[in-house]
Design a protein around this nucleic acid. Structure first.
Lengths: 138, 138
DNA sequence: ATACATGCAAAATATTTGCAACGAA
DNA sequence: TTCGTTGCAAATATTTTGCATGTAT
């Protein structure tokens, strides 16, 4: 992805192979954890430490290239911020994560800004409950 | 709080002093972390281990008595689920957490259920951005 | 050549668990 | 008395950091 390389360069960061590899993984699959990225890549790129994965994700998050997500699993997941903003519903029964889009959210952030002055640049929603199947079973 | 004692009993759990103390702390202050509860209580109740705090919060969360929150700090915070459902906007500048209520959310969960069959029993929203002051300063 | 980046191992944090002792019912 | 609960310490798990080495610019 060109854009990501330009953002790095324009901020004075270097374009390393490790950074390229990590972004490539995120392009291939969404909602990856640091550990998962590390595992997926270690065979083809043994020259990549877990700490570099963390440092890179941190940087990419800081630059707004990557979104950091929390599904209450005890660790974070990441995905490219270029994906359309979306939200998650996590099933208490089977752990499945269902996604949904909701234009109302755009309105919500405007409303919040009007009321409190808070300027939103990203947001997360997580619904906790049961998916259709688990709700039927339970 | 009576209600909490009844829920415990009706499910066959025992009403211990530790559990009472932890709920009392949550009644006094919202958004507490496990560590904070432990610190607040250790003087008056040295007979209370951090692991019990975790175990108790887990149980109370399971029973729907307590809500588990994530502000991206690397650990969880907790509050009584009896508080009116609310949402958080966390300032990237100063870390301040601004709260807001939004009736639209009730509508949102209904909409999601209609579209995906997902039955929501609780939800969290976190907006990331800058509060009025930091937005003005930055 | 000069910083910025990296890998490794060790540290720091947060949370969980094993087990003997405790105590609510 | 019984079995759920607890404290303590040790184990896990996740993420961060120090430092010598590597490498993009």
């Amino acid at each position: 992805m060109m854009e990501f390389e330009q953002i790095l360069r324009s901020r004075g960061y270097r374009l390393t192979n490790q950074r390229r590899v990590i972004v490539r993984e995120l392009e291939g699959e969404r909602h990856l954890s640091a550990e998962e990225i590390y595992e997926r890549v270690k065979e083809e790129h043994p020259e990549l430490g877990l700490s570099t994965v963390y440092r890179t994700l941190d940087l990419l998050h800081e630059l707004g290239i990557v979104r950091k997500e929390d599904f209450g699993e005890g660790y974070s997941r990441y995905e490219l911020a270029t994906e359309r903003m979306h939200h998650h519903a996590r099933c208490r029964g089977c752990g499945k994560v269902i996604e949904f889009n909701e234009e109302l959210m755009e309105y919500l952030t405007l409303q919040v800004e009007r009321e409190t002055g808070f300027v939103t640049d990203s947001y997360e929603i997580t619904l906790h409950g049961l998916c259709r199947e688990c709700a039927a079973a339970g």
